[in-house]
Design a protein around this nucleic acid. Structure first.
Lengths: 127, 127
DNA sequence: TTCTTAATGCAACATGGTTGCATTAATAAT
DNA sequence: ATTATTAATGCAACCATGTTGCATTAAGAA
């Protein structure tokens, strides 16, 4: 249920996510590994890691996709539950927030899921 | 405090938002008005309308920006308050939800605002 | 009617993301 | 250990959304 082949490039990405605990944007990753692997390889590996449940993704308010550890595939999530994400307006760091998402029901709508992005200051950037 | 000049193109956009009550993506608007006005004009007018508080914007989970009526400028919002947005997974229609956003506080973080996107089925697309 | 300048059109650009295809390299089979 | 299979990669070309500089146009004030 993991990744089919443990290639050098896959290991590089997995190692990085192992060391870093925050979310990483694709742009960051592409630039971090420029020289080490191709842009399309980064995209394709991230897709696979998300499909296999090792990573999940969300969008920042800049429209850029970010990835973080944990499974968020619908109806399979035992490794992580739906949670909001945080984005620091000052330094741009991003992370998962340890909160449950409570979806209130709304008349005339069927709500299946929700995406929540909290904006503000991280621990380092406060005051 | 409105728009400086009421040009034909501005009127076209305002008229449309007057008739439609849902949110509209820039891509839709550019395509709707192709032949009537230039792509960059659409972008620039939407910017101005948002700055002046007539419209507000949010991102769908496709990363596309959408605009809807109402003021959401920080510290000036009397015309609208922060609210979640809805996006129909079936037909793609999008709208504002009449709910207050309650931001829970999180240790080590200063939360200034939050973006909430609810995904599911709209009235027309249910069952 | 004239003047000022905000707003537009256009073309060229920037960036994020995708795709087809030949080549490479994990891993299974021998 | 060697070979065969095919998933994965690199590359280049592409697409879409969004931005910008600049010459031209047209609101609306004078």
């Amino acid at each position: 249920m993991g990744v089919s082949r443990k290639t050098k490039t896959v290991k590089l990405l997995l190692d990085l996510f192992d060391r870093k605990d925050c979310a990483l944007s694709i742009v960051e990753l592409v630039s971090t590994f420029s020289g080490k692997m191709n842009k399309s390889t980064v995209y394709r590996i991230l897709n696979r890691l998300e499909e296999s449940g090792l990573l999940h993704s969300f969008l920042g308010n800049d429209g850029l996709k970010r990835y973080a550890k944990g499974d968020q595939r619908p109806a399979k999530s035992k490794n992580t539950t739906m949670h909001p994400h945080f984005l620091c307006e000052d330094c741009g760091i991003s992370s998962c927030l340890p909160l449950e998402i409570s979806t209130s029901s709304i008349p005339n709508y069927t709500i299946k899921s929700s995406e929540q992005l909290y904006l503000g200051q991280c621990n380092n950037c406060q005051m």
